[in-house]
């Protein structure tokens, strides 16, 4: 077992740069650290590199420049042991709708891999506890496709936290769930952070979601534009203006790119 001291930062990223296909610079010299207990909101427009950043943190991408440490250890050197302390909910979980597992079975997936051996009763207790926390105890025999979008999201969060991780990473958790469910979701995230003492990183292109939850904010759009306390970010009009401008620029860049490639495909009409 890894000797993880509670004093080291949860996440520590130093001069991280990433190129897709060794040519497209997606993350440009990102550095930041995240302390125990933080609820960090990563904001940035679509295409800013949020998912790419998470892939580096989780060791899914390995060919980056710079260092990524979790709990004070380098992820690439201790991937399995470090990830057993992490829960992850990906952006678009591509789940086959007819998949026959029930909610209880899906949540118990989270125990696999991270813990070498566990007893049946331990698994049962953990799954029950996770179901209680996300409020799905009455749905345990339902199948995934019988639940609403918001409930599916909560199942995946329960799966990601069933092994008592210290860090939870949620990639765009609020996209695709309705307003009513969103409030319930915010409540759940606050509870996980405050009561279960799980440090949380969540990404969003929606400032609203982050402003309601996070105590720390990192604003990225290929580069790091801001990192610090949420109240400083949301209290600073210039900061918000910069954010919207850079979002607009990305939008325009993509738009130009699209019209260019379209006109190449359709030379004359």
């Amino acid at each position: 077992m890894l000797n993880i001291t509670s004093a080291s930062p949860i996440v520590e990223i130093d001069h991280l740069s990433y190129w897709y296909d060794s040519s497209f610079l997606t993350l440009d010299n990102i550095s930041f650290r995240m302390e125990q207990g933080d609820l960090l909101g990563i904001i940035g427009p679509n295409g800013a590199g949020k998912t790419t950043l998470f892939s580096c943190i989780l060791g899914i991408l390995t060919d980056y420049r710079g260092t990524v440490k979790l709990f004070g250890k380098e992820i690439l050197k201790n991937r399995k042991a470090l990830l057993s302390e992490v829960g992850y909910v990906p952006q678009h979980a591509s789940i086959e709708q007819s998949f026959p597992a029930n909610i209880e079975e899906i949540i118990s997936f989270g125990l696999l891999g991270s813990i070498e051996k566990y007893s049946r009763s331990y698994a049962k207790d953990q799954v029950l506890k996770a179901m209680q926390i996300v409020g799905l105890t009455d749905k345990k025999n339902k199948r995934f496709n019988e639940l609403s979008g918001g409930q599916q999201q909560r199942v995946l969060i329960a799966k990601a936290m069933v092994h008592n991780p210290r860090l939870l990473i949620l990639d765009e958790p609020t996209s695709g769930i309705d307003q009513e469910t969103q409030d319930r979701f915010y409540e759940l995230i606050r509870k996980l952070n405050a009561e279960e003492k799980i440090s949380i990183i969540l990404s969003s292109h929606d400032l609203d979601a982050v402003s309601k939850l996070a105590n720390k904010v990192a604003c990225i759009n290929r580069k790091m534009h801001f990192h610090g306390d949420a109240k400083d970010f949301f209290g600073d009009e210039n900061m918000l203006k910069t954010y919207y401008e850079s979002a607009m620029q990305t939008h325009l860049r993509l738009h130009q790119f699209n019209t260019k490639s379209n006109s190449q495909q359709l030379p004359s009409t």
């Binding site: 992850y88 591509s94 789940i95 597992a101 899906i106 997936f109 696999l112």
Partner: peptide, 19 residues
């Protein structure tokens, strides 16, 4: 079977779980 079921459910999540 649990591992295979998890991989069938979502390969990426299974890999992040350390499988």
């Amino acid at each position: 079977y649990r591992r295979l079921m998890y991989i069938t459910f979502d390969e990426k999540q299974a890999s992040v779980s350390g499988i």
